[in-house]
Design a protein around this nucleic acid. Structure first.
Lengths: 339, 339
DNA sequence: TATCAACACGAAACCGTTTTCGTTATGGGT
DNA sequence: ACCCATAACGAAAACGGTTTCGTGTTGATA
């Protein structure tokens, strides 16, 4: 086992000072050509790499960014992470991923763990429990310490920081309008409780589309589940008790499950009933029939978040100016709606 | 903006030495009750938290573990990450996730980035390019430096370290046997090139099951794709040119896509044709019909990997003893096979 | 009264870098 | 022979902790 070699080791071996070694490896003008060549050769031979931790301590910069998201397994969030990771790595940053598992406590714990020097900034998406409690003190503390934060997708107005979202209201509007244009009149929505910022916006977009096209908003056609978790029974009951010819769902799982319910009742999709979901994942692509969805461009959101964060981290300026980036969703039309 | 408070700040403010503060906050017996109370109260008031980086430098322990996997978006790997993260967090470790994107170069770069002090150990799953090149020098270097490595799922015999896999051969065997027991005779397999350790093992399990039950192994019924990426055309051609009554696929995407092809040809599933895939993800659960799969227990694999790694990291002993943990897969029977 | 243990605390080294600010030679200029 | 600029290098502080090893003060003991 070859232990890692340090500046001190090189200095001792070559009988020069640590400072000389450090400067030589940085190709400083201060050091003579001879000495530099000798030191650099030795360093290469022994595969010297500076210790990141020591550099972090000195620079007060870790080149790590902390990502706290509600769920690592959900397709949308994984694409966000992929975007963050791609962009961050390209700029020499590592990504520390923590899942809050939709829990307020875990979100707080994770942030505290990371906020004590481990990272230069946060990218986060609020857990549902946090949005429900409406308690953002952990975020306030972090921003007050001067640690930059970028909120992505699940955001709040209570915190002043950079934000990246898609226009969820527009997405739902586009989806609902698509159904209306196809002649659907009895359009339902399966969503989650309003404390989730995205669900609220989507519900609004849905309502807006209906109202603009003279369709009455009927609360009985709106199913609000308490969380993003699947509740098969409630969805079944909803279908039993409601007469619909189209359904908009806030995620692809609800949508695909709903399609199966419809199919089991002998309905043809999309002839008898249309479906549109959110999130353009594998499920939508490979469902049968394939699902029309509102694509959220998670990877793009991740990249932009990472860019905003790193720019802020690296900017010397102390300006307290924040921006909110709103991306446009795209309707990906597949076989669950009439073309 | 309240900057972070340090031991030095507390010491200056309370007119004691830094060592006293440090000891007081650790509740050392050396410090008088009065002084301790004063210091602890002050620290709490100003919300003192020790700087992780400084501690890492001192201890030569970062409490970070590096995870390098081929793909963050693939369901199986996300469940592995979830398992790692859950276990690691519970033991006070953070997880730095890097995706190699199935690229050898990115795998090497990521490992080098992390190996210079950022992490205490690696959990990794080899990229397909790495398995194809059969070049593991980056792993050798890391292990020679004394950094513990746990290989998970995509492993190699070239490196001596702890390993966690499921019994892929058994999984494929169980799946093929299931089909045979249902009277299937013309059983195909859609897999990837043999350089991928898991695909090779699965192909062997498939062959073994056929041979043990007196069914001839027919190469024309075996489709080997060049990578895990979807190649719709090749799969279509395969179905056009091959007469099958059952298909085993090495992932759920191939399986679900294959089911759609069969359905489009008017075949009934599972009456006319059976399907089994690997990976128990959303796709399998919500496909129509739902897909029978070999569950790989990714989360369990992640947890075990993390446990093995952290145990090794924290063990003082210099023993060079490695183990390979082989988990048993489970056949999750759904509607794509006859019950 | 001299001795000594116990108590409470501080000085300093250390982890591995970076960087500022000396400190030596050396040689040129006068 | 003297002055001084310059080249080449080293000492030391700093980042923020932990930890070992003093050290000064007390009170009890012989």
């Amino acid at each position: 086992m070859k232990a890692k070699i340090t500046l001190k080791d090189i200095a001792r071996e070559l009988e020069v000072s640590i400072s000389t070694v450090s400067k030589a490896l940085k190709n400083s003008e201060e050091i003579s050509r001879d000495t530099k060549e000798k030191i650099q050769a030795f360093a290469k031979l022994y595969n010297y790499r500076p210790n990141n931790i020591a550099i972090s301590l000195k620079n007060k910069r870790t080149k790590n960014i902390g990502v706290v998201i509600p769920d690592i397994v959900h397709h949308f969030f994984t694409t966000v992470i992929r975007g963050i990771e791609k962009y961050a790595n390209a700029r020499g940053y590592n990504v520390i991923v923590c899942s809050s598992d939709e829990s307020f406590d875990r979100e707080v714990i994770n942030m505290e763990m990371l906020a004590n020097g481990s990272i230069d900034g946060f990218i986060m998406s609020l857990s549902s429990e946090t949005q429900k409690k409406n308690d953002y003190n952990h975020l306030k503390e972090v921003t007050e310490q001067g640690i930059p934060v970028v909120l992505v997708d699940r955001i709040t107005n209570e915190i002043e920081c950079d934000k990246v979202v898609i226009d969820d209201q527009l997405g739902a509007y586009m989806a609902a309008k698509k159904m209306i244009d196809q002649g659907r009149k009895k359009i339902g929505i399966i969503t989650t409780a309003d404390y989730l910022s995205v669900s609220r916006a989507r519900t609004e977009g849905y309502k807006k589309a209906l109202m603009e096209h003279g369709i009455e908003v009927d609360e009985s056609r709106m199913l609000k589940l308490s969380s993003m978790d699947m509740d098969e029974e409630l969805i079944k009951d909803f279908f039993d008790s409601t007469d619909l010819d189209a359904v908009l769902c806030v995620n692809e799982i609800f949508a695909v499950f709903s399609m199966r319910l419809a199919q089991k009742r002998g309905l043809r999709i999309p002839e008898d009933m249309s479906f549109i979901g959110f999130t353009d994942g594998f499920l939508s692509q490979y469902a049968y029939p394939s699902l029309t969805v509102v694509a959220q461009h998670g990877q793009k959101m991740g990249e932009i978040s990472a860019q905003m964060l790193i720019d802020k981290v690296e900017s010397e300026a102390e300006e307290e100016t924040y921006q909110t980036k709103i991306l446009e969703p795209t309707l990906v039309v597949r076989d669950s709606t009439i073309n």
